[in-house]
Design a protein around this nucleic acid. Structure first.
Length: 674
RNA sequence: GGCUACGUAGCUCAGUUGGUCAGAGCAUCGCACUCAUAAUGCGAGGGUCGGUGGUUCAAAUCCACCCGUAGCCA
């Protein structure tokens, strides 16, 4: 029976380009969708740009254009990248659409009528210069617990404390630099707690992965709380009906964007939208998302839908993040790779294959190991798979005028290949792509073994055994055809090349039931070429050049824009800061502190203990023995872990981008820096 | 800090309910072959399954604690 399946990927935010981390999700989703279509199911894949919110409003202002112009421009870039990676959306739309406005209002109104919306006045930080309320991430100040400078309004990256912006010491608006005031404002809330019973039942009945269900259990135990769904003007989004200056929070209309994109598709294809979204619809709804947005998709989203009388998702499929060579993607290391940079150097089909070879149905992170990538693509795709056609087609073309034999010499092997298709299909269906790829490659090994055992190149030397050569190659090419169909969801481009070579129409899962016999094929041309490590290196180099912190002209989005040069000070003020060269004698992690390292600094006659927030960027052993610069006359500060007797100088925004200062060779501990 | 996961050969990963579970691919080494994009086939070496305790006749597999890694804390 044909299934009707609606599939979504999370909406990319319209303020920056697509990178390899994004692509894990779109490639995973696309493989599943292509598999469903290949199996003969009706599967519609929709997505959209997530176009609303404060960051987009501010980014547009920074660029001197309207938000509409910004999201239009970014949307085009996104779609261009997706097309290059073979992501076959049935519809790609934007959340800034009439359909989305109508559906957002409808879902809100229905929930409000059912009593699931509250409103009340809350206090919030307000930027008097900009005339706007400030999200937590747009306020910075000193951590109230450990005193670390330059921390965001919601949590401290140095000590991990969480708090509200009003707790910050010396808070400033990131936008204007003004000191935020506390002001009152009326906000609207979605009563998530009304849906507790329904959500528990839903979460426990197989709609999410086990790991996700565990996480949801934890949230249930903490108790569900209402969710603030409104934001004050100015805001780029949809105004809440019945208000003058309140807007829907971007996360309210983002998932509704899935519906809106689908409605847009329905209108253009004459499809009945309601049949897919009514509470009792028998269609399936799959959402592929990253593990970071489970809360929105497995709690808020089903609750909102339920409250508005719509159907709930069939399945939430969460995946992990991508790392490169075992570490978080890093701009300075060149491993923060944009989709566009990748395709300047490498074939997108290879990334699809590599990801498929490592993706399971779990939420584990996926590591792109660059050496492994190169070897795996060359070995599996070129050496094993494509090689089957390459090594057998020459005989057919040269000796038999491109014609396959009339029957298979080993039909039992062919039947086994066909039979194995069900296990492979099951793996695809359960999103166990790595298992599917393993099975396909095991069959590819079998095909190569068959060819080796039969030794057609020996038989070709004798006229009398020539018919056997044709039979063997016919068998081998038929095995190749089966394998290409099985791998078609992963590498659609290579599969299309194989179809052209085999001179057949577009293949589907059923096509392999009957072998290709007494049939003319085309001359073989390389369907995939080997990857050279130099290509990978060139890609990394380009990433580094494009994204590493720049030192030249001021950039509208560079460090100077984010953190403008401070007020002028006179030389005497500066001279009061006593900077000294110090050697790092010891560096060690601090138990209980995620961000800190304990450093023993030799000042040439005196040793100081300093706690520095370097752990996210440096391993202790990398620091030992190095020279650096410290503030030697900073007042000691008592911390939870001991007293810090100074401060080490470092640059960078944080995370893995922290760079300690190091004097030129020849400097000795204790020397003054001036 | 709390929580959710993860830590198995040099690398990337499989290992359903505890009992041929110590495996695969790649890499390395040897042999064979020459049809093929130096591709393929056969074979070999390599791991006290993060650490320490515990439960059990039996643990990579269950429990506790510790170490390391990632993410979440609305």
């Amino acid at each position: 029976m044909q299934r009707n399946i609606l599939v979504t990927s999370a909406l990319p935010y319209a303020n920056g380009p697509i990178h390899l981390g994004h692509l894990v999700e779109y490639i995973q989703t696309d493989i599943w969708v292509r598999f469903q279509k290949l199996r003969g199911n009706r599967c519609i894949y929709v997505c959209a740009d997530d176009a609303h919110g404060t960051p987009i409003m501010l980014k547009a202002r920074e660029l001197g254009i309207t938000p509409e112009e910004l999201i239009e421009r970014i949307g085009r870039e996104h779609q261009d990248d997706f097309a290059a990676f073979g992501i076959g959306f049935d519809n790609y739309y934007t959340t800034h659409s009439q359909e989305n406005r109508e559906l957002s209002e409808l879902i809100y109104e229905r929930n409000r009528e059912a009593g699931h919306i509250d409103s009340r006045t809350i206090k919030q930080a307000y930027d008097p210069d900009e005339g706007m309320f400030l999200p937590d991430r747009y306020i910075k100040g000193e951590c109230p617990r450990c005193g670390a400078a330059d921390q965001y309004g919601d949590s401290c990256e140095a000590c991990g404390a969480t708090y509200t912006p009003t707790d910050l010491i010396n808070p400033v608006s990131v936008i204007s630099g003004a000191t935020p005031e506390e002001r009152e404002s009326l906000h609207y809330f979605f009563r998530l707690q009304d849906f507790e019973t329904m959500l528990k039942d839903w979460a426990r009945s197989g709609h999410v992965q086990p790991e996700v269900a565990n996480k949801l259990e934890e949230w249930f135990q903490e108790g569900l709380r209402e969710w603030d769904i409104s934001r004050d003007a100015p805001y780029f989004g949809f105004r809440i009906p019945g208000t003058e200056d309140k807007y829907f929070y971007v996360w309210l209309d983002a998932p509704i964007g899935y519906m809106a994109s689908f409605r847009n598709w329905c209108e253009r294809h004459g499809e009945d939208f309601d049949a897919w979204w009514d509470a009792d619809s028998d269609t399936e709804l799959y959402h592929f998302i990253g593990k970071d947005i489970v809360y929105f998709h497995a709690l808020f989203w089903p609750a909102m839908l339920h409250g508005a009388g719509f159907r709930k998702p069939t399945r939430i499929c969460a995946h992990g993040f991508m790392t490169v060579d075992g570490a978080k993607m890093s701009k300075s290391r060149g491993t923060f790779i944009m989709a566009h940079t990748y395709r300047n150097h490498l074939n997108p089909e290879y990334l699809r294959y590599y990801m498929a070879a490592k993706l399971g149905s779990n939420v584990h992170d996926l590591d792109l190991n660059l050496d492994d990538f190169t070897q795996r693509v060359n070995s599996d795709l070129v050496g094993k798979l494509v090689n089957i056609a390459s090594r057998s087609s020459g005989f057919i073309t040269k000796r038999f005028d491109g014609r396959l034999a009339g029957e298979l010499p080993a039909p039992e092997i062919y039947r086994e290949f066909v039979a194995r298709g069900e296990q492979i299909a099951e793996a695809y269906e359960n999103r166990e792509f790595s298992r599917a790829v393993r099975e396909i490659m095991a069959l590819a090994d079998q095909a190569n073994q068959y060819f080796d055992e039969e030794q057609p190149w020996v038989l070709a030397r004798d006229e009398s055994t020539l018919p056997q050569v044709q039979a063997i190659c016919t068998q081998t090419l038929n095995l190749f055809r089966v394998l290409m169909v099985y791998l078609k969801p992963v590498v659609p481009g290579i599969a299309a090349g194989a179809e052209a070579f085999l001179n057949v129409d577009e293949q589907n899962w059923q096509s392999v039931q009957a072998p290709l016999l007494d049939h003319a094929i085309n001359r073989f041309q390389p369907l995939a070429t080997r990857v050279e490590r130099a290509q990978v290196d060139a890609m990394i180099e380009e990433s580094r050049e494009t994204l590493a912190p720049k030192t030249d002209a001021p950039d509208t989005s560079g460090p100077l824009a984010d953190d403008p040069i401070g007020d002028t000070v006179d030389i005497d003020t500066f001279a009061r800061v006593d900077l000294r060269v110090a050697r790092i004698r010891e560096a060690a992690r601090v138990d209980g502190a995620d961000k800190l390292l304990r450093l023993s600094l030799d000042l040439g006659g005196e040793t100081r203990t300093v706690f520095a927030g370097l752990r996210s960027a440096y391993a202790p052993e990398d620091l030992q023995g190095r020279l650096t610069v410290m503030v030697a006359n900073l007042a000691p500060r008592k911390m939870r872990f001991g007293v810090s007797e100074g401060m080490v100088l470092a640059a960078g925004p944080g995370g893995d981008e922290i760079f300690i200062l190091e004097p030129d060779s020849g400097a000795r501990p204790g020397m003054r820096v001036k």
